[in-house]
């Protein structure tokens, strides 16, 4: 309507980019601990990736550059089976956690308003894994449920729900309640309001919760170890049983691939979030 307001808005957006460089200038000598921290975090990861390109048979002495351990992993039937099991468990647990966790968060924020119920729902996320593992094992054994991928999935879903609730709840609390009221005011029922207004506005948090429960399940060891059956295995357990006989470059290659998978999913998540936030 008014061209003046448009340019003002553009100017405002441009100025948002500035604090970054201002922060850099204000950092001073603090860059040193920052770099040390970052090295501490990333040198081990970089080591794994570098060693995965080692041509030799040793996982610790770099001899020559080679990609041979990557196809070698896929020829290892046991490891591939473990990877597929892990992906199945992680996808199912994430799907369940996302749906149930989102609905639970909506219920907690919109209808319950109880700090006690909130802590109860998010408890499994804070509880030590070992407690959850022992409890689940006892529960499955008492209930006569045969241990296997199903029990691992159930166990992973149990703490996945808690993480999804934590993430989605934080977003819902910030959400302007009047958005949902406006939807009802304009004639939409409860379910239409949820699908058309609530869900789209919390979508970034739901996606973040889904990614979180997926990656947490993918590399979860303690609970999977306890609730695992005799004939099945997930990737972390398979890797652990291999590593007991020494790290092989094949494991490094696997670690590098998992890293790429994780980074890719984080980037996809971030892009999705940015897109919805823009809207």
């Amino acid at each position: 309507m008014n061209p003046g307001t448009n340019t003002a808005a553009v100017e405002k957006n441009r100025s948002v980019a500035w604090p970054g460089s201002a922060r850099k200038r204000r950092l001073g000598w603090l860059w040193l601990p920052l770099v040390v921290c970052l090295l501490f975090l990333y040198v081990p990861i970089a080591t794994v990736v570098a060693m995965s390109f080692n041509g030799g048979n040793s996982a610790l002495h770099f001899q020559s550059f080679s990609l041979r351990w990557y196809p070698a992993f896929f020829r290892d039937a046991d490891m591939v089976r473990a990877l597929l099991s892990s992906l199945t468990v992680a996808l199912s647990a994430a799907a369940f956690s996302t749906v149930v966790g989102t609905l639970l968060a909506v219920g907690l924020v919109r209808y319950a308003r109880s700090t006690f119920l909130d802590s109860l729902a998010m408890g499994p996320a804070i509880m030590p894994d070992i407690v959850l593992a022992i409890g689940l094992l006892a529960f499955f054994t008492l209930g006569g449920i045969p241990l296997g991928l199903t029990t691992i999935t159930i166990a992973h879903a149990a703490f996945g729900v808690a993480f999804v609730v934590a993430v989605v709840r934080a977003r819902l609390v910030q959400l302007d309640r009047s958005l949902e009221e406006a939807s009802e005011d304009l004639g939409a029922g409860r379910s239409a309001t949820f699908l058309r207004v609530t869900l789209p506005t919390i979508a970034p948090a739901v996606l973040a919760g889904a990614l979180l429960s997926f990656t947490l399940s993918l590399d979860e060891f303690v609970i999977a170890f306890f609730t695992n059956g005799p004939t099945t295995t997930t990737l972390p357990i398979a890797i652990y049983s291999r590593v007991r006989f020494g790290i092989t470059p094949e494991i490094n290659a696997l670690a590098a691939m998992l890293l790429v998978l994780t980074i890719a999913s984080v980037i996809i998540g971030a892009l999705a979030i940015r897109r919805t936030e823009k809207e």
Binding site: E184, D185, L186, G187, V197, T276, E279
Partner: peptide, 20 residues
């Protein structure tokens, strides 16, 4: 009548426009 059936509409203080 529930809110969504009333022949009444409201303009909210925060405007409550759907951001998406």
């Amino acid at each position: 009548m529930p809110a969504n059936r009333r022949p009444v509409n409201m303009m909210f203080q925060s405007y409550a426009l759907f951001p998406h």
